[in-house]
Design a protein around this nucleic acid. Structure first.
Length: 917
RNA sequence: GCCCUGGUGGUGGAACUGGUAGACACGCAGGACUUAAAAUCCUGUUCGCCGCAACGCGAGUGCGGGUUCGAUUCCCGCCUGGGGCACCA
């Protein structure tokens, strides 16, 4: 009987579907375990082999946990709102809901092919009104809440109003605008509109104004990656900054808790570091510098107030509102020209720019301690959004400031004596200060406190903890997203009543942007007549809480019952790519904390453990066309010609050898007349590792591989490729090795001519040793997500059993259970062939028995001066003295000793021996 | 520019806590079976040197240093691939 994987896999996939074997109950006496994949955006291109990597890993782990006796929740769904569908709609006139549904169908078929154990009865789609009803509902909770800094948690805004009525905002400084201060009487005297305006500065979801990339020609707002060198990627039109009304989430209030929470969860150190850097907590001081010849002052933020005597100039962000006021008439033209230049620059470009640029405003600030006049410059390297948007520049201590000073010939004051060599800045905190007035003679590190204290005494500065993180922009001028349940009445945002949810996304005739940078919803007269918000929510709205909906996906009463979330609790294992390191992971951590604060769930971190999957890169293939001809030369000969390098579809290339016939037929015969210059009768392609993408013709479709080798082979091969958390290029070639392994396993059970060949004979110690080695390896490796070495463990096991011609049920049956999480179809089939009833997934995991693998002796490697020269088999019970005696008596060791005295004898039990002479 | 991460044979990778570098697989070479092919099986395969052979010598984990009896693993400096940087998801 042959291993006919197509029949077997189809049969069991059908059976699993019919028996509902993967449906999970919220009631169980077993311990719970929640395994979650980052859900995909269903793109039109379908799955390529990179997508399932994490899904296979999570599938293996879910099945493994189930075998280990857990009630495992393992759901899947779709992050179904997004820009590509909208772009497709603009180009093809197809409603995003239609194309998205079609894409989801494709995804689902592809996923089903691979034999995943998802509980599809819990599927969610963020674009489904039954789902986004609750996204809108949660938004309303954020809108109706504020962050109580005293209690360090979110609370209903109605509580805040009560406080205001009783005692004003004395104990609740306004996070949105610190200048807003009032007492109870003051609050009472404000108009309702003014009161709402003030409350907006407290809400966790609030409306404000922010800059966006505005492209006049396209009439739309662009994402950063749609802007290249100041022009739109599509069309190359100019892009400028434009201020628009935007919704925000007040994530900055949670900065500290998001930072502290990292200590309670198992994310990799790299991931925690990235989130920490994003939050960017720093402490220092805000200092107000008086400006000469005007009564205005300039507020700067610095982490190094100790260097205040070394300030040689100020740098203000070109967007800073003070510039208008302080620029002198002589400098105005230069400053305005510079601001125009900066308007076309993205933040990224501004930070990455090596070329120094700036403009002098003509204004001077005054050093509060010695009255020195400090010129005020503007430059793109200072960003408006961070700190106060202005810095005090200390060129002797900061490299960027130093280069700026050199470039504009600004004299540099040295306040650290010999620690500054005049050629480069020295950012030390350990130098002794000089030229620094009352700080002279102090070590910088200690002077920080002294300087802050003095500034506070003088009333011109104060201690300040700062965060690089900004409030999260939460609106998009787009169509395909959740509508905000907000109405605008005379400039005041009124939340819809919860009974009016979901606020359905209306049909539109055109997906083009609305007037004045508004989204497409602004084109709908009825929508505008109802004064509804025309922005929609961003992609991360739906994905910030989806892990909760899976727990209770069909609940119409609430987003997720407290009973369900108390039972399933945190996600125990979350698998996804590092590209979400900050965005998605930080936002869902925020939402979880807010829902926790408001009492809707009982835990404040969504993901207990995070496993990052690496990217599968494409291995691109190239042909070399001799310029202006139809002649293609093989890679080895390309250097002899002037050629253009063209991507070719990797599916037409076997290894590096091009299928020239397929190439001639490719793309409707575009290359039909190609002539080839071969080497050794072959056309050899060039190779490069790049991102896997349709445009590079290097995508490999899993369907094709499943069709050719079966899902079990495909799953195991994806794992075998390398560590799951590392990026690696895809190479289809190696898949045959894994396929051979499964066929070899099959032959332990079936012979082509004889049929069933397994026996009921008793296993030998040698066979038991092989089995128990495999049990240990599979368990350890799976537990530490080392799936690639687990697969090689299976190969070793099957190779060894084949060598011994072992066909005994006593060995083979437990082996199938081990294999069931990696290759579920073939394991299920053989499990039933052996006569078992019920799924192999409900078998009990074989127990590892150490005695079966115990060794009595070890072949020790013996090194002389660290170089291995021989090996000696020694009993594991032997002590060091005994070992030394044996080793020194050894012939090879004697030869190397040449009678020289022994300096040192190193013996690591069970490991190695080193003889030092 | 800033932050994170990787670099080991022809290829993917293994070596888990400083202890035999190259497990397992691909590819390649040779062989067996076969009319032939497929499938399967066996042998070899880091590089260099001597060679009949060796369980003979030397080098070797991106590059250059260092710590150690011993370094792919730890430290310092460099080179280089990948990811992220707030409206792609």
């Amino acid at each position: 009987m042959e291993y006919s994987f197509r029949d077997i896999e189809k049969k069991w996939q059908q059976n699993w579907k019919e028996t509902g074997i993967y449906q999970v109950d919220n009631n169980s006496s077993k311990p719970k375990y929640y395994v979650l994949d980052m859900f995909p955006y269903p793109s039109g291109a379908g799955l390529h082999v990179g997508h399932p990597l994490g899904y296979i890993a999570s599938d293996i782990y879910s099945r493994f946990k189930r075998l280990k006796g857990f009630n495992v929740l393992h759901p899947m769904g779709y992050d179904a709102f997004g820009l590509p569908a909208e772009q497709y709609a603009i180009e093809h006139g197809i409603h995003p809901a239609v194309s998205t549904a079609r894409n989801i169908d494709t995804f689902r078929k592809q996923l089903d092919n691979i034999g995943f154990c998802y509980d599809w009865s819990r599927e969610v789609r963020t674009s489904d009104p039954a789902y986004y009803k609750w996204t809108q509902w949660i938004f309303l909770q954020l809108f109706k809440s504020y962050y109580n800094r005293t209690a360090a948690k979110a609370m209903p805004i109605t509580e805040l109003v009560k406080e205001f009525e009783q005692s004003g905002n004395q104990s609740h400084p306004c996070p949105g605008d610190e200048s807003i201060q009032f007492d109870a009487a003051g609050w009472g005297s404000y108009s309702p509109a003014r009161q709402q305006e003030i409350l907006m500065h407290y809400r966790l979801a609030f409306c404000g104004y922010g800059e966006v990339n505005w492209c006049e020609a396209l009439g739309t707002v662009l994402a950063n990656d749609e802007v290249v060198n100041g022009v739109s990627e599509r069309g190359g039109y100019p892009v400028v900054k434009k201020k628009l009304r935007q919704w925000y989430l007040r994530i900055t209030e949670y900065a500290d808790r998001l930072l502290q929470g990292l200590e309670t969860i198992e994310f990799s150190d790299a991931m925690k570091e990235m989130q920490g850097n994003w939050i960017g907590k720093s402490s220092g001081a805000e200092i107000s510098f008086a400006l000469a010849d005007t009564n205005a002052s300039l507020m700067v933020y610095t982490t190094r107030p100790d260097t205040i005597f070394g300030v040689d100039f100020m740098v203000v962000a070109p967007e800073h509102e003070l510039i208008e006021k302080i620029t002198t008439p002589e400098q105005r033209q230069e400053v305005e020209a510079y601001i125009t230049y900066v308007k076309s620059r993205s933040e990224r470009e501004r930070q990455a720019e090596k070329k120094i640029s700036g403009a002098f405003t003509g204004a001077y600030a005054l050093n509060p301690f010695n009255g020195r006049k400090i010129p005020v410059w503007i430059s793109e390297y200072v960003l408006a959004g961070y700190g106060t948007g202005a810095i005090m520049a200390v060129p002797c201590g900061d490299e960027r400031d130093f280069r700026f000073a050199q470039h504009f010939s600004i004299p540099v004051t040295n306040i650290i004596g010999e620690a500054f060599n005049g050629n480069e800045a020295n950012p030390t905190k350990d130098a002794v200060l000089s030229n620094s007035g009352f700080l002279d003679g102090m070590v910088m590190r200690n002077a920080i406190e002294t300087a802050i204290n003095r500034l506070e005494e003088m009333g011109i500065g104060k201690r300040k903890v700062n965060y690089k993180m900004r409030d999260a922009a939460f609106s998009r001028q787009r169509y395909w997203g959740e509508p905000f349940p907000i109405q605008w009445k005379d400039g005041t945002a009124i939340p819809l009543d919860e009974t009016e949810l979901p606020l359905l996304l209306p049909e539109v005739d055109s997906y083009s942007p609305g007037p004045e940078g508004e989204g497409p919803l602004a084109n709908i007269p009825e929508w505008v007549a109802k004064e509804l918000e025309t922005n929609t929510m961003p992609g991360y709205a739906g994905s910030s809480w989806y892990f909760l909906r899976y727990m209770d996906p069909h609940n119409n009463e609430t987003f997720c019952s407290r009973k369900a979330s108390d039972y399933w609790n945190q996600v125990d294992l979350y698998i996804g790519g590092t590209e979400h390191a900050v965005g998605h992971l930080l936002y869902s951590r925020l939402w979880t904390k807010i829902l926790f604060d408001l009492g809707h769930i009982g835990f404040e971190e969504p993901f207990r453990k995070l496993l990052n999957q690496g990217m599968i890169q494409g291995s691109s293939r190239f042909v070399y066309r001799v310029r202006n001809t139809k002649k293609y030369v093989s890679a080895g000969l390309a250097a002899q010609y002037e050629t253009d390098k063209l991507h070719v579809d990797v599916n037409m290339v076997d290894g590096v050898e091009l299928d020239t016939e397929a190439f001639r037929k490719w793309r409707n015969g575009e290359f039909a007349e190609a002539e080839f210059v071969l080497e050794d009768g072959k056309y050899i392609c060039g190779v490069e590792v790049e991102k896997m993408s349709k445009s590079k013709f290097n995508t490999v479709n899993p369907d094709m591989l499943v069709e050719k080798f079966g899902a079990d082979t495909f799953r195991m091969y994806e794992m075998f490729l390398g560590p799951v958390d590392q990026s690696k290029p895809w190479d289809t070639k190696g898949i045959e090795g894994v396929h051979r392994f499964i066929k070899k396993l099959w032959r332990l059970f079936f012979d082509e001519t004889k049929g069933k060949i397994w026996t009921e004979e008793k296993a030998t110690p040698e066979e038991l040793k092989i089995l128990h080695k495999a049990i240990k390896k599979t368990e350890d490796d799976t537990e530490r997500f080392s799936f690639n070495t687990a697969v090689s463990g299976f190969m070793i096991c099957v190779n060894e059993l084949s060598d011994l011609k072992c066909n005994k049920r006593e060995i083979l049956e437990p082996l199938l259970i081990l294999l069931a999480s990696y290759a579920p179809h073939v394991s299920e089939e053989l499990w039933h062939q052996l006569g078992n009833e019920g799924s192999v997934l409900d078998a009990s995991y074989p127990a590892f028995i150490a005695e079966h693998v115990a060794e009595s002796a070890k072949e020790y490697p013996v090194s002389i001066n660290g170089k291995v020269r021989t090996s000696i088999s020694i009993s594991l019970s032997a002590g060091e003295n005994e070992v030394q005696e044996l080793v020194l008596a050894n012939e090879t060791v004697q030869k190397w000793l040449e009678g020289k005295p022994l300096k040192k004898f190193i013996f690591v039990k069970g490991r190695m021996i080193n003889v030092v002479i």
